[in-house]
């Protein structure tokens, strides 16, 4: 029986799970939509990778992504890490010489600068979703095409349309306008890819020295149109790994491997019942929204509190009275 390490990356749009072995090879992986229900998405991921991995003992678990805390509590994870660190760690294993990591996910985008295998700087989009995956998928919907075909259609264009993409909402009106005055569909699609790239570089990449080798990852890296647009604008080769969409989960798995606490993880978590209940703590005018997390009807964790009044211990003592 082989030993494996599980990494789960639960993002806003998609949920990724990866099992690696001691040599950092990916044994099993799954990628599916979160659809606003991270707990269920993770359960499906677990079922899928359990089938793929066969006879394996998972020694430790790492979680990352925006639902890292929730999923960390659910899986009793050994490491719960932010996306930036997880992506950097994962990428450094695949591309040890990488200097710049561009990452565009569903609702956030980041840039990570690396020098000699060490993260030296990073930035994350702060204000809006322009220049992220959800921008592309909402525009694809408007044009009536699948976001998966986006890249290939974009590649057929030689004359990308200029789209005002400073803001997702206004980009949509500009896109409609360009379509109505007769721009070709593939040109508009290529223009959107270019808009995402320019937005990313002006927003997240502002003031950062982008040095090769450059690795591009996150869900949007699967879009060949965006990859080409990056290459055109930056003027350097952009590396995209075949597992680029899994890199966060891969990083979490590697972090789990390095932090194992000697506990065996059971896939039966997928069969358990997890419920979250939210309530507003009325003990002071802060009105913190506290989330209580139950496993098989037992409170296992809570968060959202700003002070001791809303801590797990306090909630438990109230509940038991």
């Amino acid at each position: 029986m082989k030993t494996g390490y599980l990494g789960v990356d639960t993002g806003s749009i998609s949920t990724k799970g990866v099992i690696i072995d001691d040599e950092n090879n990916i044994i099993a992986n799954e990628y599916l939509w979160t659809e606003g229900n991270p707990v269920n998405a993770v359960k499906s991921v677990l079922r899928a990778i359990e089938k793929q991995s066969g006879d394996i003992a998972v020694a430790s678990v790492g979680t990352t992504g925006s639902a890292r805390k929730l999923i960390g509590a659910m899986l009793e994870a050994d490491v719960v890490k932010n996306e930036i660190t997880a992506h950097a760690v994962g990428t450094l294993v695949v591309f040890p010489d990488v200097r710049t990591i561009l990452e565009i996910g569903g609702q956030d985008s980041k840039i990570i600068l690396i020098d000699n295998g060490i993260v030296v700087d990073y930035a994350m989009n702060t204000l809006c979703a322009a220049g992220t995956g959800s921008f592309l998928s909402s525009q694809a919907k408007r044009l009536g095409i699948d976001v998966e075909d986006f890249g290939n259609i974009a590649l057929t264009s030689n004359n990308p349309t200029k789209i005002a993409a400073r803001c997702t909402v206004f980009a949509e009106s500009d896109l409609v306008h360009k379509a109505q005055i007769g721009h070709k569909r593939e040109d508009i699609i290529a223009g959107l890819c270019l808009a995402v790239v320019n937005n990313y570089l002006n927003n997240v990449g502002k003031g950062k020295a982008i040095k090769p080798p450059i690795v591009f990852q996150g869900g949007v890296s699967k879009n060949s149109g965006v990859v080409r647009a990056f290459e055109q604008v930056i003027g350097e080769e952009i590396l995209v790994d075949k597992n680029s969409h899994l890199m966060g989960a891969y990083g979490a798995a590697i972090l789990a491997k390095n932090n194992k606490k000697g506990r065996v993880f059971g896939f039966d978590v997928a069969k358990m019942e997890f419920v979250t209940k939210g309530y507003e703590c009325k003990k002071c005018p802060n009105n913190c929204e506290i989330i209580c997390f139950y496993k098989n009807n037992i409170l296992i964790d809570s968060w959202g509190n700003r002070c001791m009044n809303g801590s797990v211990a306090e909630i438990m003592s109230v509940k038991s009275q």
């Binding site: 890490k81 932010n82 996306e83 930036i84 660190t85 060490i118 993260v119 030296v120 990073y122 994350m124």
Partner: peptide
């Protein structure tokens, strides 16, 4: 919180 966490991780790695 995410940015602070990442900042701390980065400092430690360095």
């Amino acid at each position: 919180k995410t940015r602070l966490e990442a900042f701390y991780d980065m400092l430690e790695m360095r």
